[in-house]
Design a binder for these strands. Sequence first.
DNA 1: CTAAATGCAAACGGTTTGCAATGCT
DNA 2: AGCATTGCAAACCGTTTGCATTTAG
Lengths: 139, 139
Amino acid sequence: MKNRIEYLKHYLKKYNIKPSTIRIKTLDYLLSNDIHPNVEEIYKKLIEDIPTLSKTSIYNTLELFVEKGLVQIVRIDDKDSKYDLNTDPHGHFICNICDKIYDFDIKDTKNIEKELEGCNIGSKNIYYYGICKKCNENL
Amino acid sequence: MKNRIEYLKHYLKKYNIKPSTIRIKTLDYLLSNDIHPNVEEIYKKLIEDIPTLSKTSIYNTLELFVEKGLVQIVRIDDKDSKYDLNTDPHGHFICNICDKIYDFDIKDTKNIEKELEGCNIGSKNIYYYGICKKCNENL
DNA sequence: CTAAATGCAAACGGTTTGCAATGCT
DNA sequence: AGCATTGCAAACCGTTTGCATTTAG
């Protein structure tokens, strides 16, 4: 456990983020759940440990994480924002039936980017919508 | 002018939408401005013609348009939704400096979609963020 | 006349803000 | 003590809702 916390602190440090209880636990949550949580979900989980927790702190923490490049915002629907650990660039497939969000690799985007010559590409978001394998099989 | 209106009515009919004043004028706006307007912008323009116009009607109209597949929602930032005439699939490049939104063709997405075998792809949204040509030149 | 379309005002809900309280070094 | 972090309550604002009014065939 001690090691885990040291690991999380080090992880934050890499992104130039000073560790704090909430930041460590938020990162822990993001690393332990390969999902794309929203503020509500993180809040519900963390308040089990930190009874005085406020949603504002989750917002603050995630805002900082985004700023420092540790996570990215995933805007899939208009309801709320989801947060995703920033790993290699990848796409998101959202199933219209079960609402699950799947990550998928983006091997080669050269074809797409042909049109963008002269532009300076900073980041990209690729969202696909449809019916996932599992739901397809149950139809 | 008569011809224009007939054209717009016909356009709506193709999407199985019964024509009405607001629907015709909203479509007219979308066709005449190659931008990605939000509700506010459409409202501001149309109220010049229709003094009793309410924003609710714009929301209703656009909701119907989305439902019928005439427009698609573009979610670029968390502030509001933008609306885009549904033409061929295309990507959006958003300039971080001038905030302009550029459409660009998506020639070939086979490379990307390799990972999605077994899934049923319904639609795709491809957003690129960076610095556009024009702003690049002025740096 | 009837159903659809429009308008108004209030509610909704995720997010932001300002500031007070708390914690850490 | 002094500065960063956290928490609370209210504000914010784009959007939705319920219902009354108007329009069109």
